[in-house]
Amino acid sequence: MALSTLGNHSVTTTAVERAILGKGSDSKGLIFKLLVGSSIAFALLVLVVLLFDVVTGAWPVLTGRGADFLSSDLRSRASESGVFQPLRGTFWIGVFVVVFSFPVGIGAAIYLEEYAGDNVFTRFIDLNIRNLAGVPSVVYGILGFSIFVKFFDGFFPNSVGQHAGKTTAAAGITLAVLALPIVIITASEAIRAVPQALREGGYGVGATKSQVVRTQVLPYAAPGILTGTLLSLARALGEAAPLILVGAVQDKLGGRTGFFDFAQFGEQFKALPITITNFAGRPGDDWQEVTAAAIVVLLVLVLMANTAAILLRNRFEKKRG
């Protein structure tokens, strides 16, 4: 009896052993892992090569002139030319995007997700917002030229002549409109991710709809909303095509106005992406170095926006517990 039990036992053991020890390595799984691994390796490689190329190209200017490069005017000689006006232009365009597209976009998202019902009309609006996010940016430039440039014609006291409306304000609002659909979509998605149980908990103790939105939905969705909106800001800062149509210029400096001088909004504006394109078209190695340096300045600006997004998101997520 004991023997046969032992025998049976060993038979089962071999069967189990055979099954769980497997059939060697999982070659298909390995190939898949290699494929996805090489995708990330390729993406990183391209990024590193680009960054390395730009930074080495910009190195002489960045180390040689440093802060002087940021505070110098645009000049016709590479060794003297800085990026003060385009940096200032891009900074203020960013401020316009933050001031106009963030509140309006987040507000629209709250309305769509929390207040608007689900019907043909709202689904039509939703679809169109998604389409707007995919519209080529140059189309926004045409819109900016035909509406905002006209609107700001004569708006500022010091803006005169045939380019009167082509101001930082017009450019900023054009890019704010460009960023708006992306802000709405990302904010909507963040709001949609708020657990229904939280809303029910709020309603369950007698909160009104607006109280639930303000005290439950928005705090919970804040990290997602912030990440999305700041990424859309980063995208807007890098746009060149719409700015060409709205009337970005490279020269026509006018008087030297300060970084925070209100009068600059009436001047024809400059912006980093345009300046980079312009610099890149000039002959000579010295201009190539200045181009690379301007690219580094724009990259740092965009990286700062992204870093702010990450820091704020972490802070809000910690708060969320």
Binding site: L198, E200, G201, G202, G206
Partner: peptide
């Protein structure tokens, strides 16, 4: 109402209880 899955707000214990009176 008390729900099937405990759904405390992502706030402090105090703020959870004080939420209803506050709103």
């Amino acid at each position: 109402m008390v729900f099937q899955k405990p759904n405390p707000f992502p706030k402090s214990i105090y703020d959870n209880v004080a939420y209803g009176p506050r709103v």
